[in-house]
């Protein structure tokens, strides 16, 4: 076998496609993105399977009297993966808590949630929310206001849009790195004259850029956030 003489690039790409690395990327993206991203359903399932396997291995090792150092190395690896998984799910649930109404009324965002996350946010019908936060605001403020001002989505009955719903700020800056050479990125910020110019991204170079401009590329997985 010539596995020992793999060119560096292949070796790197091999390493970077293990599930733990993929989880790390998903975690970093989720952490840096202002809005909720698609739930990595397959990846999370695989990771959970692997964690279980690792737990069994560690148990077997410690029962079988394997060298404690080896066991603790396995344990450390396991702990790190566990942390990534928990932190990933935690960041998501906190985003959901924060932008509950915005997510619940936007189908595109709603469909990014996992089954459990959907149950957690409990959407009943598109327009009427029913979760603990809406109930809380309902009871503490809205029910005490005059009739035409009780909506949780609109400032008053004469508002045409939902102007009461907090949304994530997409015009924020993020650090990112592209996986491939990209061209034709439309900048969404800066002086108006500059906006018609298209922006290019080299592979592997760090950029500091407005999230809104690269939103679609993050979603399609071409760009990673850091």
């Amino acid at each position: 076998m010539d596995s020992g003489s793999l060119p560096m690039d292949d070796y790197e790409s091999l390493i970077s496609t293990t599930d733990v690395e993929l989880l790390k990327t998903a975690w970093r993206n989720e952490k840096a993105a202002p809005e909720i991203l698609r739930y990595e359903i397959d990846l999370i399932q695989r990771i959970r399977g692997q964690i279980q396997l690792m737990e069994e291995t560690v148990d077997e090792f410690s029962a079988g009297g394997t060298d404690p150092l080896t066991v603790s190395l396995y344990q450390m690896d396991l702990d790190r993966t566990q942390f990534l998984l928990r932190s990933y799910l935690r960041i998501r649930i906190q985003k959901i808590e924060k932008y509950m109404f915005h997510i619940a009324k936007t189908d595109e965002l709603w469909n990014r949630l996992s089954k459990e996350e959907k149950t957690f946010a409990r959407r009943k019908g598109i327009s009427s929310f029913n979760n603990d936060l809406s109930q809380h605001l309902e009871e503490s403020v809205l029910s005490k206001l005059p009739e035409n001002y009780q909506s949780i989505q609109k400032q008053s009955v004469i508002s045409e849009e939902d102007d009461m719903v907090p949304e994530p700020q997409l015009e924020t800056f993020v650090v990112c790195r592209s996986k491939e050479y990209l061209t034709g990125i439309q900048l969404e910020d800066g002086p108006v004259d500059d906006r018609s110019k298209l922006f290019e991204m080299e592979r592997g170079v760090l950029y500091f850029i407005c999230y809104k401009s690269i939103k679609a590329l993050v979603e399609s997985g071409k760009i990673d956030l850091l």
Binding site: S87, T119, F120
Partner: peptide, 23 residues
Amino acid sequence: ALKSYMSKLELDLTVDMVPPKDP
């Protein structure tokens, strides 16, 4: 609500709040 979410996941999210250095 959070507790029932975590029990559905069969995962306690309240531990591991900081990245582990040493087990």
